[in-house]
């Protein structure tokens, strides 16, 4: 990332951090006054008084200090970014469109989405649909892993028949090895 782009990202991130730290600080104050999350009406005045007297016992003490430090550091980061010439002028329609079309960003989104689909859709769905098929222990995991590996390899590899065949073979073998080695040999519970 170029330095000017980096400082712009710093500027944006520092604002997010300032907001985040303020939110964390508010949560810490709530925790300080009402540590066990009771309804506010149910918190007796004596309890608040005791909390204020013995402030150093509060579970909110360190989170509050840390949120304060994050806020300070974020303000400093904001200052450094501004001093480096970074401005929020990049939040424009065309620049956002260009960012969304950026190959690396698209790859990041695709990889993360595929990983989510694998972990939260494929594995549970295969688990439900294929639970009765007992060719090997963890057969549903094998199928889910095979589909995930193949789709990743095809999505990021060459658009050639040779690569597709190799991807198919590698996905099948790796899924089988992982399922057998961990599920059967090492007796590790598979997702």
């Amino acid at each position: 990332m170029e330095k000017s782009t980096l400082r712009r990202a710093d500027l944006l991130f520092s604002i997010a951090l300032i907001l985040g730290s303020l939110w964390f600080m508010i949560q810490s104050i709530k925790l300080f006054l009402n540590p066990f999350g009771r309804k506010w009406e149910a918190v007796p005045a004596e309890a608040v008084k005791e909390t204020l007297t013995f402030w150093y016992k509060s579970p909110a003490l360190m989170p509050f200090f840390v949120s304060l430090l994050v806020l300070l550091c974020s303000v400093m980061l904001f200052h450094v970014a501004m001093k480096s010439g970074a401005r929020l002028d990049f939040i424009k329609k065309d620049k956002i469109a260009a960012f969304l079309k950026n190959r690396e960003f698209q790859s990041f989104v695709v990889i993360t989405l595929l990983l989510c689909v694998y972990a939260f859709v494929l594995i549970p769905v295969c688990g439900k649909l294929l639970v009765r098929i007992r060719i090997i222990r963890g057969f549903p995991f094998f199928v889910a892993t095979f589909i995930y590996l193949l789709s990743m390899m095809l999505a990021f590899g060459h658009r050639k028949l040779g690569h597709a065949v190799r991807s198919l073979l590698v996905s099948f073998l790796v899924s089988g090895i992982v399922t057998y080695a961990f599920g059967t040999l090492a007796k590790i519970p598979l997702p």
Partner: peptide, 15 residues
């Protein structure tokens, strides 16, 4: 190739 290696790392991470 990364395209073969990295998806395997992702699977191992999940397991």
């Amino acid at each position: 190739p990364s395209v073969f290696l990295m998806p395997i790392i992702a699977v191992l991470s999940i397991v």
